[in-house]
Design a binder for these strands. Sequence first.
DNA 1: GCAGGATGATACCGGTCGGTATCATCAGCG
DNA 2: CGCTGATGATACCGACCGGTATCATCCTGC
Lengths: 198, 198
Amino acid sequence: MARKAAKAGPSPRKRIFSTAAELFYRRGIRAVGVETIAAEASTTKMGLYRSFPSKDELVAEWLRDHDARFWQTWDAMSQKHPGDPRRQLQTAFALIAKHVSDPAARGCPMANAAVEITDNRHPARKVIETHKGKLRARLAQLCREVGAAEPSLLADELFLLMEGAQISIVLGVRGPARNVSRAADTLIDSHLQQKRSG
Amino acid sequence: MARKAAKAGPSPRKRIFSTAAELFYRRGIRAVGVETIAAEASTTKMGLYRSFPSKDELVAEWLRDHDARFWQTWDAMSQKHPGDPRRQLQTAFALIAKHVSDPAARGCPMANAAVEITDNRHPARKVIETHKGKLRARLAQLCREVGAAEPSLLADELFLLMEGAQISIVLGVRGPARNVSRAADTLIDSHLQQKRSG
DNA sequence: GCAGGATGATACCGGTCGGTATCATCAGCG
DNA sequence: CGCTGATGATACCGACCGGTATCATCCTGC
């Protein structure tokens, strides 16, 4: 086994992983070289390649981890309001709003990676599409539960709001994202009011 | 003066510029090297550096050009419905919807560049922020003209929809963007109905 | 104490990056 | 014609890229 708690603390793999996650998010994937990651994690390039087969796989692993944490948070939040889909939707948007209000935030790691990675053969590509596909599906499920007139339409509209809020942070326009929750509420209300017209 | 119409057609500068624009948009900025641009434009790296001082400036120039064309299209569209801000808003969203339905589309060049360029000293940075700031302002102006209860709030909401529609294309999730116009209409309607409550 | 596996350090590989210098060519114009 | 300025071609620069091989070290379980 690895050492327990020498001067370097966690295992090299964990140090590399968390360092890579932060650097990829803050500076971008292509802007960060493996040597920089290794040095920042107090190890060497060789150490990195003992824990990860390639930079591309490290990127994919990072996004898989983000996906896991994202749904973990999502589920924990949902379970606070069982049987109350409206509340669950609101809490989801509150989560986005909170993240987006963080001055250190730089949007959604998945979306940013999608912009940088144009080659469909990159292992991160399917991670991204699966994640966002699942997000859309989960939104649609909540919209169905909440009794929207056109649940999948409402889900798509909310999806656009979420993605718009995240990317607008990257644009350096911090204002609009502050109103993402109100926009969501307005759209949800509209879909509930016309409930009986279908 | 340059030659008029030899076998190569337009001037090297224009060939380089349009080639760079397409490659930057399709493959990303960092993914495309100056040598590739030059070769694709049927010239050499030296020819590129005779027309542009650096790659960074070429990128900035590309985005400045996009900005100019964008507002040109926007203004032309506005002038088709003088005094009808609602129609102008709808046409703007129809424009986005049309672009986003193009299978070759890969989102908004400005937003994609913002993701790739994390260094604030890059000359393209202020082009991006100025462009998006202006977009937000123009939306707010139209929302004021249309008589919205809270015009700047509505403008922010519409801004999120526009950006969300563009980035969702990059995510490989083509569905939601198809409903961007309907979402916009719903939000506008809501802000018009509660007009007298303020 | 000793063996062995995990780790760190260093040097190296071929390739590509952005950017430059030099020289040949070719068009248009006096 | 010959000149000039724009262009193309080639070689080169230092730096960095992702990835690998090799060797020294050091902790740990036996």
